[in-house]
């Protein structure tokens, strides 16, 4: 009698790992505060949505990613990488980003075989989780010194990296490096809108360097434009402020933004012709005067 010999389906295992890796790669590259539906992830990694969903669920079990249910449509799940230095570190190892050997790990042989490395990171991950859970339960063997130092340095290290990469690139490139898929103007517009705050935060950190003209940074310009507009308001405070003052304020604000090439920068980021920047200025003027009118009418 012949017995059926059980074979290990190597292909399946490999394939699942590949999907996970590419999903992780996508989420790692787009880790700046956005959440993505399965469809979008599947489209950008070019794998069918079901495998991507499976991979995401497996990653969720291992606590790599965070799952958020859409508020609008309860059936849609939105995903992002967990914001945790340890997770970033493990993901970097897994997708093959080696930053500094002294910080990550010192074994040379790990680079030779990607599957060994994969396996090792899994163990690494699990043990970490166990350590964490046992310490949180308040076990007697809790030794704070080692783990704390490790955590602090690695977090610091990752912060530093992301800060310097953003610091060294002007607004446009920062956008493009955060979102490599900018192709359609629509997408770019979406990315600009959804990242205004992130970009602004990053530029807030970089006021000390003189090498790059950070005056172009959106944050600074918007602030100054606001300050100018505000001064205008203050000048008019003694008089009755009405709609007559609005064009004046609008002109100051948009003139400043024009001087600082903000309209040009944004039109360029939208992959549009330079001639569109005048249209953008026109739209800005109209929108700002509308905003001010609404605000003034509300006060009255």
């Amino acid at each position: 009698m012949r017995y059926h010999i059980k074979k290990i389906k190597e292909f399946g295992i490999k394939y699942a790992g590949d999907v996970e890796t590419s999903v992780l790669k996508f989420l790692y590259n787009n880790r700046n505060g956005l959440i993505y539906p399965v469809k979008t992830i599947a489209r950008s990694v070019q794998i069918n949505p079901d495998s991507v969903r499976g991979a995401l669920n497996r990653l969720h079990e291992r606590r790599y990613v965070k799952k958020i249910w859409s508020r609008k449509d309860g059936r849609i799940t939105l995903w992002r990488l967990r914001r945790n230095a340890k997770v970033y570190q493990i993901v970097e190892q897994r997708i093959g980003i080696h930053k500094s050997s002294s910080v990550i790990h010192k074994n040379d042989y790990s680079n030779k075989n990607p599957f060994i490395q994969d396996y090792r990171t899994n163990i690494f991950d699990r043990t970490r989780n166990e350590v964490r859970s046992s310490t949180f339960k308040g076990s007697k063997f809790f030794e704070p010194s080692k783990t704390h130092i490790k955590k602090d340095t690695s977090e610091h290290y990752i912060d530093k990296i992301s800060k310097t990469t953003i610091k060294l690139s002007p607004l446009k490139t920062a956008l493009q490096s955060a979102f490599p898929h900018i192709a359609l103007p629509l997408e770019a517009g979406y990315q600009i809108l959804s990242n205004l705050d992130t970009i602004r935060d990053s530029y807030n950190l970089t006021t000390d360097t003189g090498s790059y003209s950070l005056c172009n940074a959106l944050n600074e310009t918007v602030k100054t434009a606001t300050r100018l507009a505000y001064n205008h308001v203050v000048n008019y405070v003694s008089q009755t402020i009405g709609n007559a003052v609005i064009p004046n304020i609008v002109e100051t604000s948009s003139k400043y933004l024009e001087q600082k090439d903000i309209f040009k920068d944004i039109t360029e980021s939208l992959n549009l012709d330079e001639s569109y920047s005048d249209d953008f200025k026109n739209f800005y003027d109209a929108s700002l005067s509308n905003c001010l009118k609404n605000r003034i009418n509300m006060v009255r």
Partner: peptide, 13 residues
């Protein structure tokens, strides 16, 4: 208000 105007004008654009 400036921020809002910037956002709205991008959408208009």
């Amino acid at each position: 208000l400036t921020d809002e105007a910037l956002m709205i004008s991008t959408v208009k654009m």
